[in-house]
Nucleic acid binder design. Structure first.
Lengths: 205, 205
DNA sequence: ACCATTAGGTGGTCAGACCAGTATGGAATT
DNA sequence: AATTCCATACTGGTCTGACCACCTAATGGT
């Protein structure tokens, strides 16, 4: 019945353990040997599961010390994925497009949910020349109120940064966008967005 | 001097091997034992490297057959990250919203790229009562021409299924949507979408 | 109080064994 | 000659036990 691979099961078990114990970034996981014994599996299976988690950027192993939870969105996975993504032109195009679309979504959400303090932080970012697009959009993303979408954006952004130059946009773009956002006018914001960062929404395939 | 971990080095070696040999999706990798011998490392280290690649969604292992390259993108990755992210109520709401937004995006892309055969498949799906939303949207997603976005949608969809019942929509919704899609009228399609599957794009937090 | 030593724990790695599937080729059958 | 069937070799999956390098903390002597 249960033909699931042991290392995959182990991965789920470890996940359950993390959730149940409420482990936060920085916390220590049980040792490999203890995990193996508690889960009734071999240490090698535990290690294979941990390896997956490590390369996904969820844990960090320190020789002689132990295994620790770490901040998600780590670069390990970004570098690795980028390494493979680089070999595929199509994937690059899809990534760029997806990033663009998600950013447009975030603009829309921002207009419907933003508070005054978010606008204030945006203005501050814009005053700091040269304007940092990543930083600017990070603020928008956080204020958009959808944490999962922010996560997705961060991942896309990190991937894109791994093998594409940062987009350099004119100051006027930020000014116009900010004006639209202040009015909570999502239609205008999107119009500004599409005018300054056009994406060929037309390719056949 | 070289204090890099063996499984990390092995990972790079395997990548180099894949690039040099020009392995494409579907191609077979050397066996674990052969890799271990060629790279002069233990089989367990090879396995740990492969495990990372597998959970990153880059390779697929089939017991008794071998290890194969698979489509690039992110699926396991998104799955796993989501698994760790979706542990609270807030995340569930974000998931539902994100899924809704991504689906709206896919509708837009579909209108700009769809071919006639995609429309045909949609009509076929609609004729099969009861209409399966997942199946219907799967067709739209694939025809939208952005593989990465499809992957993200699939992950979102899978997770949503775990938390919430499948949305049950009136047949008239599919009819109206199909009519709009036939005309490649993204504005109308989105209008139908928002009318039948409304999402409270207004919550403060 | 200080510092050096030491013992135990931890991750990292390897080798070997065995299991459970699949593929393959040759023998037996038709 | 074509087909079926099965032994065999190969593949991934798993466990065990051993050893290394490293870190920490307790120990013990000064």
């Amino acid at each position: 019945m249960n033909d699931e691979k042991v290392y995959a099961e182990t991965l789920k078990h470890i996940h359950r353990l993390i959730v149940q114990d409420g482990l936060a970034p920085g916390d220590k996981l049980p040792s490999e040997r203890e995990l193996a014994e508690r889960l009734g599996v071999g240490r090698s299976s535990v290690r294979e599961a941990l390896r997956a988690l490590e390369f996904l950027g969820l844990i960090e192993t320190r020789r002689g010390e132990g295994t620790y939870m770490c901040e998600i969105g780590s670069h390990q996975l970004v570098d690795l994925l980028a390494m493979f993504l680089l070999e595929n032109e199509r994937a690059k195009a899809d990534l760029a497009e997806t990033k663009w679309l998600v950013e447009r979504l975030l603009l829309e959400l921002f207009c419907q949910r933003q508070g005054e303090e978010a606008i204030g932080r945006l203005e501050k970012t814009v005053r700091q020349k040269p304007i940092d697009f990543e930083r600017f959009f990070q603020t928008i993303a956080e204020a958009a109120g959808n944490y999962l979408l922010v996560r997705i954006w961060r991942a896309l952004s990190a991937f894109a940064a791994a093998f594409a130059p940062k987009p350099s946009l004119a100051d006027s773009f930020y000014d116009q966008l900010l004006a639209a956002l202040k009015k909570r006018d999502s239609a205008e914001a999107i119009a500004v967005w599409e005018a300054h960062r056009p994406w060929p929404l037309s390719k056949k395939s």
